[in-house]
Amino acid sequence: MEQLGYFDDITADDLKAMAAATGPKVTIYLPTAPPQHQPQDTATRVKSLVNEARRKLVNAGVPESDAKDMMASFDAIATDAPFLRQQGESLALFAAKGLNLVYRLGVPVAEYTHVAEHFVLRPISETLTKSHSFYILGVSQNKVRLLDATKDSVVQLDLQDIVPESFEEVTNTDDRQATLQNRSVGSNGTMFHGHGGIADSQDAEVSRYFHKVGDSLGDLLGRARSQPMVLAGVAENVTALKASSSYPVVAEDFISGNPDSVSNRELQKSGWEVVRPHFAANDDAAFGRFADVSGTGLGETQPDVIREAAVAGRIDTLFINPSLNASDGTGDVNTAILHTKLNSGDIVIISDGRVENVAALMRY
């Protein structure tokens, strides 16, 4: 199964654990995208960054034995060959007393080690923008592929025996042979019984196949999802899938051509170009709602005020300027990111200058 990389979800339970952590907190970021970084190189740099974090903990007043205990579980990463080979764009390590979290992520980061009273989340805030996820369904008669993608990542999903994997899986071979019963007409060839013969029968089976694929998508993914789906295939197949799809959000544009020889990475890049205007429009609409209430208390740009609102669960949408470095500012923005997600708020990346640092649209 070809995929763009290996990616780990930052779950709601992980966010709760991060928010509940007390005392000094460690954040380590490490770029791991090939070909610049090979497994052995990554192992060496993990060791170096973990040792650096230990020194910073001790300098922050943590007893040396406690600092060693806090970072002990990360030492195993440097000797875990399969894990080191299976990387995405970056590696993120978070530690606090009684807490160690490791993530392989799809966003590029700069090498970074930080010890403070907060975790540093700004550099990976884009991984928390679940509103920018999309599906890609690649379909031909030979193969069905379903991908879960973002701008930076793609993973192939298991069809779980719910969505057919190919035309042959839907077609009953015995029924097909019975339909195509033929009789000999001497040495001139074969004549098939029935009006239209083999062509009509084949067309009916192909139509049934695409109907089955489209109709089963809702059973696999849910029939009330808002994550858009991009179809990849020849035009007539895409038309048939759109007509029968039980999944509610199928993009109008599609990736044209037979997808069988196209890699997951190539489909992800093409799919992002299809959905990018959709996401941009949604982000613009959200920022428009913020602009309408800016200065009224429902639209805020002060980081300390935003942090307090996030902790109280008041933030509907948090807008982040990704151009600032991880070390810019205090822990206000990082705390706001954590608690916005913890309280089911949205995060939107605004990189065109409309947001100087951070902004927030309040629920109340």
Rank of each mutant, 00 (worst) to 15 (best):
228 P>V: 06
164 P>S: 10
230 V>P: 02
115 V>K: 00
208 R>A: 15
331 G>M: 01
51 N>V: 05
62 V>R: 06
17 A>M: 11
358 V>P: 08
297 G>W: 00
38 Q>E: 14
300 E>P: 01
49 L>Q: 15
111 E>F: 02
210 F>E: 03
122 R>Q: 12
364 Y>P: 11
92 A>G: 07
194 G>M: 09
35 P>M: 07
148 D>Q: 06
301 T>G: 05
241 L>Q: 02
332 D>N: 09
17 A>Q: 14
263 S>N: 10
221 L>V: 06
53 A>M: 09
93 L>M: 14
129 T>M: 13
94 F>I: 02
194 G>W: 07
280 A>T: 12
34 P>G: 05
177 Q>V: 14
218 G>R: 04
194 G>V: 08
250 V>W: 01
276 R>S: 13
350 I>W: 00
293 V>D: 08
293 V>S: 07
92 A>T: 08
255 I>G: 10
203 D>K: 15
259 P>E: 06
192 F>K: 11
146 L>V: 08
198 I>W: 05
14 D>I: 04
285 A>D: 06
333 V>H: 05
306 I>M: 04
324 L>V: 11
110 A>R: 12
271 G>Y: 05
99 L>F: 10
199 A>W: 00
112 Y>G: 10
155 V>M: 08
338 L>C: 00
316 D>T: 02
49 L>V: 04
203 D>R: 15
46 V>Q: 05
121 L>D: 02
208 R>V: 13
224 A>G: 11
127 T>L: 08
216 S>V: 09
355 V>R: 07
308 E>N: 15
299 G>F: 00
11 T>M: 09
147 L>S: 01
62 V>E: 08
130 K>L: 11
99 L>Q: 07
66 D>Q: 15
263 S>A: 12
142 N>P: 03
269 K>I: 14
62 V>G: 06
78 A>R: 06
129 T>Y: 00
242 K>P: 11
292 D>A: 15
275 V>R: 00
110 A>K: 15
19 A>W: 01
50 V>G: 05
168 E>G: 13
349 I>Y: 00
270 S>M: 12
324 L>H: 13
196 G>K: 06
251 A>P: 03
208 R>G: 10
195 H>K: 13
225 R>C: 13
357 N>Q: 14
184 S>T: 15
249 V>A: 10
49 L>R: 11
16 K>M: 11
179 T>I: 09
69 D>C: 05
284 D>H: 05
321 N>A: 02
121 L>I: 08
353 G>C: 03
123 P>T: 05
306 I>E: 03
82 P>V: 09
76 A>D: 13
314 R>P: 06
21 A>H: 06
19 A>T: 06
123 P>F: 01
201 S>Q: 13
87 Q>G: 12
318 L>A: 07
37 H>W: 15
